[in-house]
Design a protein around this nucleic acid. Sequence first.
DNA 1: CATGGACATATTGTATGCAAAAATGGTCGC
DNA 2: GCGACCATTTTTGCATACAATATGTCCATG
Lengths: 226, 226
Amino acid sequence: MSEVVTPLDRSALHAAVAARLRSMIVEGELAPGMRLNERVLCEKLDVSRTPLREAFKRLAGEGLVVLLPNRGAEVARMDRADIEATFTVIAALEGLAGELAATHVTAAELAEIRALQFEMLASHARRDLPGYFRANMRIHALICAAARNPVLVETFERLNTRIFATRYRSNLTPERWDQAVAEHAEMLRLLEARDGAGLKALMRRHVENKRATIVAALQARQDRAA
Amino acid sequence: MSEVVTPLDRSALHAAVAARLRSMIVEGELAPGMRLNERVLCEKLDVSRTPLREAFKRLAGEGLVVLLPNRGAEVARMDRADIEATFTVIAALEGLAGELAATHVTAAELAEIRALQFEMLASHARRDLPGYFRANMRIHALICAAARNPVLVETFERLNTRIFATRYRSNLTPERWDQAVAEHAEMLRLLEARDGAGLKALMRRHVENKRATIVAALQARQDRAA
DNA sequence: CATGGACATATTGTATGCAAAAATGGTCGC
DNA sequence: GCGACCATTTTTGCATACAATATGTCCATG
């Protein structure tokens, strides 16, 4: 196992450890279902067990980690049904975000979303999937922020974090990719038109389309395995 | 300050402490903004600092507690805007719950919701507000459960916990109370008719009406204070 | 009287020790 | 060869000790 990657901020160790673990989980370095061994992680992060255990509890509260009584902690597992259920809720939340953003979005935000839309088109043209997802993700986050509802932002982030790898590191067929780009163009148009109802419906559908793609891919993988 | 109320389950102390604190926060025994002094709570709950601090971190992950660097923890404060924002998200979530419940609700669940509706009518007739809220709350929880989406349930509970006291211990004008009861009758009718779209719209509106009532009450209180 | 600084106290944050529970491994019996 | 059982090791959970930070108090000074 590798050594300490980057030294942690020694003030507020538990928070720093939680942040590091969160990122390791999101990046897949700590895979779903993986057991979180205290001794190993203490050595790796160069901290004692106290802040590490406190970080576990924090992440358990966020739903990223599951605590097993007397058996420590593991990265939360997500089966197909969990992922589908999570996307369903996110679809509703993003629908709400779109609806509210249409009312509250500022000119500066709209300009930034336009810029990101072009970045996304560039990545699409280059078939640069990581670049595409980066711009895509920022557009979704910005629309959510433009809703001016901190609870919505927090809830969205919380759920989005859990399915981050699934959502933003999946494969896309050329058709589905084209469709997603077209949906984003329409999203931008509706946002510029301040059409809350339209944006709400589209964003919900957009996320539900993503859900369908992901679920189908997971189903196919499951079938291949069987 | 009072002594230990009920001894805690000594296995899984941190979880037991978290549960106890959660209930104390929801019941208002630990009010929003109140500082959580470790020594005091250790004595009161008869545990050492370790499980107590782990419980703090857990509740922070759930958003019930805020951690202040080097200054411990306090019960999360909720100003008028936070409460309003929370209701807005809950309204969307309950809308989704209604929509999905219309498809997935079982006959047994429907029967129980009918029974609770009658209980609620009884409490309303007696002007028994606590009894009314008890039945009311259980109906909302049951519809949410009937949606068959564990992520929705978890997210709903998480947000509902934060505004629990506000939502379920508020005052109601006779008119607003009558209106709420009427909305519940309509909710039941739409659920029986398996009208997902109708129930979605109604539940969202129902919660948004509640939001308006609460926000107006908070505003009035604020004005009086000024 | 307000203000600021030094000291004392209280509180929080991290590391470590100890006990209990779970995992491991090896031996025996079948 | 396989599985059950027991001893050993490992790991977790809680308590406590120690260090660092924040808070409160008192007095001196303007």
